[in-house]
């Protein structure tokens, strides 16, 4: 027994260099991943940052009860789901459509150029893209100028101050920014289709639409299915960079998603325990959702998403 341990120690000593490469990583994970997990228990406490963690008073489910009876919490759930539904049911097919249309372009150079340009906005920060958007939507912005000059409006509207516009604004701007980037994965899937299939279809006299529908779409179906399930499993999240930039005190009733609610309660109002309770609750539901979606994905496509 002792000998075995000694042998192991010797082997360990022999590979100390290798160990010294991995252990800093493990220490990093312990600090930056595991300690925050421990801090999640403040959801069950009345946490005071100046008191050592375990000396805080345990209040168990007090904060959970508090937010579950808070209308503002449910409002944030509604906003999150509302924006997700827009994104999943209307936004999801757009990159697929774009990829299919782009694939029909015959001139390779033009195709490549369009593709390269189309994913450029993905690399522009929301601090800038949002800045442009706010300018366009402002009272003197080009959208008002356009609408007034075309006769759709008789005077300028403060678009971003009206809560009812918020979901649409975020949806459209997100589509504008991310469509090209999201299409990459479909384009790659299309590029992987065996050209023999198209040649065979040509011989059978299939027209362009038939080839698009019966070959291209059918061949990328697994990709579509997996990405769709992934999108659904993500429905409790929101594009925080975007929403945090576009929100203001006027549109808050429709802009506050769960993420933003956690931010406003936690860092805005300093209610650490309360907002950690929301976070904890959201994580558990999201994890359950991910497992469920993974199960569904395995049943439908034979492949898991995780």
């Amino acid at each position: 027994m002792k000998r075995k341990a000694k042998k192991k120690l010797l082997a360990l000593k022999k590979q100390w260099q290798l160990q010294s490469m991995v252990i800093p990583g493990i220490v990093w994970m312990a600090i930056f991943c595991y300690i925050p997990l421990v801090y999640l228990i403040i959801a069950f406490m009345d946490y005071n940052i100046s008191v050592p963690l375990f000396e805080n008073e345990w209040v168990w489910f007090k904060h959970f009860k508090a937010f579950l009876t808070d209308d503002r919490f449910w409002r944030s759930v509604r906003n999150t789901l509302g924006m997700s539904v827009l994104k999943i049911f209307i936004g999801f097919p757009i990159p697929i459509l774009f990829a299919l249309l782009l694939n029909e372009i015959r001139n390779e150079k033009f195709k490549k150029m369009v593709q390269t340009i189309s994913y450029l906005p993905h690399f522009i920060s929301w601090a800038i893209f949002g800045g442009i958007l706010l300018n366009w939507l402002s009272e003197t912005g080009i959208i008002n100028q356009l609408m007034v000059s075309l006769g759709f409006q008789d005077r300028a509207i403060l678009y971003n101050a009206d809560p009812d516009n918020f979901w649409m604004i975020t949806f459209l701007s997100d589509t504008l920014k991310e469509t090209g980037w999201s299409a990459i994965i479909y384009l790659a899937a299309i590029a992987g289709i065996d050209p023999g299939l198209y040649e065979a279809a040509d011989l059978d006299g299939a027209n362009r639409w038939q080839k698009m529908w019966y070959i291209t779409v059918q061949c990328i179906r697994p990709t579509i299915a997996i990405l769709f399930i992934l999108a659904v499993s993500n429905c409790l999240g929101s594009n925080f960079d975007q929403i945090f930039f576009m929100k203001n005190s006027a549109n808050m009733p429709k802009a506050e998603t769960i993420d933003l609610y956690i931010y406003n309660m936690g860092l805005g109002q300093g209610r650490y325990s309360f907002s950690t309770a929301v976070l904890f609750f959201r994580s558990i539901i999201a994890f359950g959702l991910l497992q469920l979606c993974n199960f569904v994905s395995k049943k439908l496509t034979g492949e898991g998403i995780i």
């Binding site: 991943c33 300690i35 925050p36 997990l37 421990v38 801090y39 999640l40 403040i42 956690i262 931010y263 936690g266 860092l267 650490y272 907002s275 950690t276 976070l279 994580s283 994890f287």
Partner: peptide, 8 residues
């Protein structure tokens, strides 16, 4: 799979 999130 698990992370602390904003406040932690």
């Amino acid at each position: 799979f698990f992370n602390g999130g904003l406040i932690p």
